[in-house]
């Protein structure tokens, strides 16, 4: 089938966003990007994707709104509890042997994954020796992550997940309820650096012991996944751990040989030491 006009317009829009703002969505999985742009189109009442392109080039206040369509902010605390259980039972014993630790949560969205790990590390007595790096490209999401406030009606799910992940305390020890919001303790993020960092266009972070990057690679095409897997390998210490989403895999990556399976079922890998 020949390329449709809409597909051409989408390519041009992504080129424009990259050239003008340096946000690079050109190698994101296209079917999902297309759906999300068509949603933006319907919601904003424009006639065509080209009109979005014109609007975002001439009015920079449109960019944050467009980012909210182009990135997906779906997350949960202790999402896939068995992943966090595996970290607790299998990875933590190795981490304990280090006097100081660096943990990178890449694509941290609104902080759910960060707070999950911060709680897990606190419960395992590792919090004091750990620095967390929480990064994302969506400034609104990063700001929410920094605030650590979630609607109270999500807490029930978070609590169930925390228990299922092997949580030692009650989740309620880590937040205070304020009307319809749960405000997580600031002590949980005392040792966290939040930063705007793109896995697509920015450089490696140094000497991490654990990188948790879940449900981000799934949005990238194969080529881009390769770049990012390499970036992770360059950012890990020898023997460092990488955890990805439950439906993601390093199997097809050109850099798979830099990692070994550590907990196969939970998609936890270990950088080989050479």
């Amino acid at each position: 089938m020949s390329e449709s006009v809409e597909d051409i317009e989408i390519q041009l829009l992504l080129d424009a966003v990259y050239r003008h703002y340096h946000y690079d969505f050109r190698h994101y999985a296209r079917a999902s990007i297309k759906r999300r742009l068509l949603q933006a189109l319907a919601q904003w009442g424009y006639e065509s994707i080209s009109e979005i392109q014109s609007a975002v080039l001439h009015d920079e206040t449109i960019l944050p709104q467009l980012l909210n369509f182009l990135t997906v902010q779906v997350s949960e605390m202790f999402r896939d509890p068995s992943y966090f259980r595996a970290l607790r039972e299998k990875v933590v014993p190795h981490l304990r042997t280090y006097p100081s630790l660096k943990v990178w949560i890449a694509g941290c969205s609104q902080g759910e994954e960060l707070y999950s790990l911060a709680i897990l590390f606190a419960e395992e007595g590792l919090a004091e020796r750990t620095m967390f790096y929480a990064t994302d490209i969506n400034p609104a999401a990063l700001k929410a992550a920094q605030a650590g406030v979630y609607p109270l009606d999500r807490i029930r799910l978070f609590t169930e997940n925390h228990q299922a992940s092997g949580g030692q305390n009650s989740l309620s020890e880590y937040y205070t309820a304020n009307y319809d919001r749960a405000v997580f303790d600031r002590s949980l993020r005392e040792r966290t650096v939040f930063s705007d960092h793109s896995l697509v266009t920015d450089a490696a972070f140094g000497e991490m012991h654990l990188i948790s990057c879940r449900n981000v690679l799934i949005y990238f095409d194969r080529e881009l996944q390769d770049r990012v897997v390499r970036l992770f390998s360059d950012s890990l210490t020898r023997g460092g751990f990488l955890g990805i989403g439950s439906k993601e895999t390093l199997r097809f990556s050109a850099h798979a040989d830099r990692f070994t399976d550590f907990v196969r079922a939970e998609k936890i890998y270990r950088r080989i030491s050479r």
Binding site: A29, R30, A31, S32, R35, V72, N215, I218
Partner: peptide, 13 residues
């Protein structure tokens, strides 16, 4: 989802 080029894709949208 189905991508052009007849590959499957998953998303947590």
């Amino acid at each position: 989802l189905v991508e052009a080029g007849e590959t499957l894709a998953l998303s947590s949208d």
